[in-house]
Amino acid sequence: MAKFGKRTRAAREAFAGKSNLTIEEAVSLIKGASATKFDETIEISLNLGVDPRHADQMVRGSVNLPNGTGKTVRVAVFARGAKADEATAAGADIVGAEDLMETVQGGKIEFDRCIATPDMMPIVGRLGKVLGPRNLMPNPKVGTVTMDVAEAVKAAKGGQVTFKAEKAGVVHAGVGKASFDAAKLAENIRAFVDAVLKAKPAGAKGTYMKKVSLSSTMGPGVTVDVMSATGNSATAQAAE
């Protein structure tokens, strides 16, 4: 039997028997149980009624969280000439073309978000096996393949979160830090859930949003009532 530390045992006891909470109740519980020496990320996991192996059931998108993520995001941009200059001026951490491709191919990936101008995609396409598994591949559907690199860089730095359904139909993301005000965390969570609802694919059958869970980086998870997570009855209907 696994042995847990005092803090972990206390957190598990606090969470015992609790499920289908409102967003506010879940946030309060998680914040109260966070006792690490670092500022934990609050993570959300959505179990969706989709099979991403089918193109018409893929869920993908992005959302600008109203209160940011609390995380410092390093951004790489594939661009040349004036667009490269725009990306640098906007605050991109790494900017390049063939040289950046070679760096990534060499296994050096020092960024959290990757943006590219459309003309760079033949180069970036060679990195699919490296960037794809890390969910870093630029995609026009989430605004990371664009001529407006300056705006894309600012969005990434300002709290934009991209999401994509994994094989089991699960979408997860960080939606803030444990140090955030509870109301701001709740606002971020509802914004993220709403974005996933709006990204419901045409091929989705039956119940779309099956389960919503919240946790901190080192803490146990708790399920959230789907209606509470959606925030209003109009968008909630999309979960069905």
Score class of each variant (00 low, 15 high):
6 K>W: 12
6 K>S: 15
7 R>D: 15
8 T>W: 10
10 A>T: 14
12 R>M: 14
12 R>T: 12
12 R>S: 10
13 E>C: 09
17 G>S: 12
18 K>S: 06
19 S>V: 06
21 L>D: 00
26 A>E: 00
27 V>G: 04
28 S>H: 10
31 K>P: 09
32 G>R: 13
32 G>F: 05
32 G>N: 15
33 A>L: 06
34 S>Y: 11
41 T>S: 14
42 I>W: 01
51 D>V: 09
55 A>M: 10
56 D>K: 06
56 D>M: 07
57 Q>L: 11
58 M>D: 12
63 V>L: 05
64 N>I: 14
64 N>Q: 15
64 N>L: 15
70 G>N: 09
70 G>L: 05
70 G>M: 09
72 T>S: 14
78 F>A: 00
78 F>K: 00
79 A>W: 03
80 R>S: 15
81 G>N: 14
83 K>E: 10
84 A>Y: 06
85 D>P: 07
87 A>W: 02
89 A>M: 09
90 A>L: 08
91 G>T: 07
91 G>M: 05
92 A>W: 02
109 I>V: 15
110 E>R: 12
111 F>W: 02
115 I>T: 04
116 A>L: 03
116 A>Q: 04
120 M>Y: 01
121 M>E: 02
122 P>M: 07
122 P>S: 07
128 G>R: 05
128 G>Y: 03
130 V>Q: 11
132 G>C: 03
133 P>T: 07
134 R>N: 03
137 M>S: 04
139 N>F: 00
139 N>R: 00
142 V>F: 01
144 T>I: 06
144 T>N: 04
146 T>I: 11
146 T>M: 06
148 D>C: 08
148 D>T: 10
152 A>E: 04
154 K>C: 07
157 K>E: 08
157 K>F: 03
158 G>D: 09
159 G>V: 05
161 V>W: 00
167 K>W: 08
181 D>K: 13
186 A>N: 04
189 I>Q: 03
189 I>K: 04
192 F>N: 02
192 F>G: 01
194 D>H: 15
194 D>G: 13
197 L>R: 10
206 G>I: 08
207 T>C: 05
207 T>V: 15
209 M>W: 01
212 V>N: 00
213 S>C: 13
214 L>I: 02
215 S>L: 03
216 S>R: 02
218 M>Y: 06
220 P>S: 08
220 P>A: 09
223 T>I: 02
234 A>I: 13
234 A>G: 12
235 T>I: 14
235 T>R: 14
235 T>H: 13
235 T>V: 14
237 Q>H: 13
238 A>E: 14
240 E>Y: 14
